[in-house]
Amino acid sequence: MLDIRRLHMLKTVVARGSIAAAAQSLALSAGAVSQQLAALRREVGVDLLRPDGRTVALTEAGRVLVEHADRILGAVQEAESAVAAVKGTVGATATLAALPSTVARIVAPALTSLASLHPQLTVTCLVTDQAQLRELPLGTVDVVLGQRYHHLPDDTPRGVDAYRLLDDPLLIVTAADRAGERPVSLRELATHHLVVPPPTTDCGQAVLHACGQAGFTPSTPYVTTDIAAQITLARAGLATALIPRMAIDPTAAGIRTSLIEDHPIHRLLFAATRHTDTANPTTTAVIAALRTAAHDGRSTLLPPT
């Protein structure tokens, strides 16, 4: 009989591209993963992986086995959810991956609420600029708090359910004495120095896309994904920032925020989990807490706009 853990290792190696990367993801040594894959190869009697430059690729037999592994591991997850639903209780552990820009106004309040409502639940929170949906099918995380900018297509992977939390507009952030209390046309920023994320990021692409629609190429002498740094530069009057509303501390002093009255830039914040036919009480509780925190955070006052 095939070992489920070895099937999961094979799937992880394929997703990560190498045995070393898979081992790091699984918190194992590369030697341990290699040994388990060698045992799996002996079980099936045929090579499953082949070298592909600096990475590895599936053989035809490996591809067939991974297709079945997806269904087998999915059935195991379905069984776990069904048993949890029968028990009707929230479990002991969950792993949440979230963007840094969501921690202060969504993640922290949600975790505080979960600690009060479900004290037996320990949530491990992985804060990363790239909250990857692909981690869900691998079982690395249970819930992802992710984003999608509105100019980009929906790339939710098969086998993942995404739940809308809120639309989060980017606000124009300047020094408190540099802007009036009114919405601002994006075109007005054509003469500003902007601080923006790198153009390789979704947010950086969204800003460049909107500025192009407004008819100009922005001056971007400052490039960083660090929102605290963006706000510091804006507060000093050195640059104008475009920052998601939910990423701005409502208590931040020395800045003014303004809505974009034309060519608005929005990101959709969502919570995602692996698809199962039976809802898992633990992931359901985590998503419910994120929804409540997102709703409450949206109504929190910001510096004058």
Rank of each mutant, 00 (worst) to 15 (best):
I243W: 02
T283D: 07
H192N: 12
R182Q: 15
P199V: 13
L268W: 12
P197I: 06
E181D: 15
E188K: 11
P183F: 08
E181F: 09
A210C: 05
T283M: 05
P183Q: 09
V195R: 03
P244S: 04
E181L: 14
I260Y: 05
A234V: 05
R187N: 09
R187Q: 12
L208K: 12
A236M: 07
L194T: 02
R256I: 08
F216L: 07
L242D: 06
T251E: 15
G254C: 08
R256F: 05
V223M: 06
L194G: 02
T251D: 15
T220A: 14
A234Y: 03
A241F: 00
L208N: 11
T283Q: 06
L189K: 03
Y222I: 12
R245G: 04
D277P: 10
P198R: 11
E261Q: 13
Q213K: 13
V184W: 01
D202Y: 12
R182H: 13
D277W: 11
T232D: 15
A247S: 11
I227N: 02
A279E: 06
R182M: 13
D202R: 12
P198T: 10
T273Q: 11
D277A: 12
A190P: 00
L189Y: 05
C211W: 04
E261D: 14
V196F: 11
L189P: 01
H263R: 03
A229S: 14
G215W: 07
G215F: 05
Y222S: 13
L233F: 06
D262S: 07
T224R: 06
Q205H: 10
G204A: 04
M246W: 07
A241M: 03
P198D: 12
R256Q: 10
I255P: 03
T201G: 08
P198K: 11
Y222K: 08
A228P: 07
P218S: 00
G237K: 01
H266N: 14
V207A: 00
R274C: 06
T282C: 01
P264M: 07
A228M: 10
H275G: 09
D277S: 13
P244H: 04
R182W: 11
T232Q: 15
T278R: 00
A253R: 15
A236N: 08
P221T: 09
T191W: 09
T217K: 14
A247L: 08
P197R: 04
P218Q: 02
T225N: 13
P244D: 00
A206K: 00
P218V: 00
T224A: 09
C203G: 12
L186E: 00
E181I: 14
A236W: 03
H209N: 12
G237Y: 01
A234P: 03
S219Q: 15
P218A: 00
A229E: 15
R267H: 01
D249C: 06
G204C: 04
T276A: 07
T240K: 04
L194W: 01
Q213T: 08
H263K: 02
I260G: 06
T284V: 09
T276I: 05
T201W: 10
V207P: 02
L189F: 05
A239H: 00
R245Y: 07
C211K: 05
H193W: 15
A252E: 15
I255L: 07
N280H: 11
T278D: 00
T278H: 02
I255H: 00
L269H: 06
D262V: 04
A247M: 07
A210S: 07
T201H: 10
P264K: 07
V184A: 08
P221M: 08
Q213S: 10
I255V: 12
